[in-house]
Each structure stands twice: as C-alpha cells, then as structure tokens.
C-alpha cells in the first residue's frame, strides 16, 4: 500500500486522485496541499510518495520544493502539464525520484508512481525526453551512444526497439539509462566546480 500526498493547486486533479485511490487497495491519497509549506507543517511521516506539481501558484522554486520534500523523507515524483526540458531536469536533479507528464491518464499516472516507488521504473519516456533535450550549461555530459539511446527511447520506442536501433542489447540499454540518471544525480550534488562548467562550455563550442 502506497501512501500518497499531492502538492498541486489543481483541485480537479487532487480531487480525482482522492476519489480514484479510494477505490484501489494498493494506493491511498492521505494528504493534499496547494503548496509545500502546509504539507511539511502537517508532517510527512505517513507519506511514501509526494506528487509535486512543477509550477505552483505561489511561484516557489521547483528545485527548492523538491529538495525540501525529499529531505523530509518521502520520494518525490514531479508531475507537470507543461514543462521545458531544462526546467524539468533542474527540479529532477534536486532529488526527485521520477517525472510523469500530466497528460497521462490517472491509471497510467498511478502505474508510474507504483513502479517508481518500487524502484522498478528505469526511466519514463517523458523523463528521457527532458534529459535528451536539456540545453542548460550545467547539464551532465552524455556519451554519443547514451544520447542516441535517450533520443530514440524518448520518441516513444520501447527500450528494446530503441536498443536495437542503435545496435545494443536491451540489457545494455538499461545500463545506459541508469548511467545517465546517475550522471544527473551527480550533477545534482553541488560537487561540480566553475572549472567543470568552463570545460563544458568549451566542449559545447567545439561540438557545434
């Protein structure tokens, strides 16, 4: 049983999620808030996963929201209607466990949350899309093969098809995705220096 909380100013979504999860045995919405603050004040001890809308009405910083919620304990899954890849990845690297587009049906959303919570979700296509098209200077550097795999997988191919298309095994493809996510996690930790950034900028310039 996954105990969910939603931080979202879209009451239609939180309402629907509440009704929907009430009929499911393995998932329950235990709290809903429009911003991060009230949820943290309420306490997060009984929450496994927080669904966090990327852009909240109080214009709070998405990355900061992720950091605070993740620090409080629960896994954070970012949800969003509209998202620019750089925005998604900035928030994701602040410590989120996943990213799911709101254009998914409720059951798909729930399925994704279930897999993310269980650690079974390697990488959703929408997260792959954000990673593949992230243009921020502080993005991690991806190997050409990793990028090819990401682009193919992000365009809707199954992981098997995406792997076959660039001539690698599906198991290798899975490793690639894990490796890319690990690179992002490392970027999320503030270990990179200005020198790294300068290197990256120079590489970008050369690559162009």
């Amino acid at each position: 049983m996954i105990r969910l909380a939603a931080v979202d100013d879209d009451r239609m979504l939180t309402g629907a999620l509440g009704t929907w999860s009430a009929e499911r045995a393995d998932m329950r919405l235990v709290a809903a808030a429009e911003t991060v603050e009230p949820l943290l004040r309420r306490g997060t001890g009984d929450i496994d996963v927080v669904l966090l809308d990327l852009l909240l009405a109080d214009r709070s910083d998405p990355a900061e929201n992720v950091r605070r919620l993740a620090a409080a304990g629960p896994q954070v899954v970012i949800v969003s209607v509209v998202a620019e890849p750089g925005e998604v990845m900035t928030a994701y690297t602040a410590g989120a466990s996943g990213y799911v587009a709101k254009s998914n049906d409720l059951s798909e959303l729930a399925g994704a949350v279930r897999r993310i919570a269980a650690g079974d979700e390697v990488c959703r296509p929408e997260l792959a899309f954000a990673m593949a098209h992230d243009q921020r200077p502080e993005r991690p550097r991806l190997a050409a093969r990793e990028r090819q795999l990401l682009v193919n997988y992000a365009s809707g191919m199954t992981l098997e098809a995406a792997a076959r298309r660039i001539g690698i095994r599906p198991s290798t493809a899975k490793c690639y995705l894990e490796r890319v996510k690990e690179k992002y996690r490392r970027v999320g930790r503030p270990t990179y220096t200005k020198l790294d950034l300068a290197d990256r900028a120079r590489e970008d310039g050369l690559a162009r």
Partner: peptide
C-alpha cells in the same frame, strides 16, 4: 502513438512512433 519534435544537432527532427 508517440510524436516528438525537437532540434538534434542543428536539424529539426520529428518522429512518429
């Protein structure tokens, strides 16, 4: 079906999968 459109290495690429 999936439809993606983005710029890859200076080219606009649309994929329908």
């Amino acid at each position: 079906a999936w439809l993606t459109a983005a710029v890859e290495e200076g080219e606009v690429v649309v994929r329908i999968v």
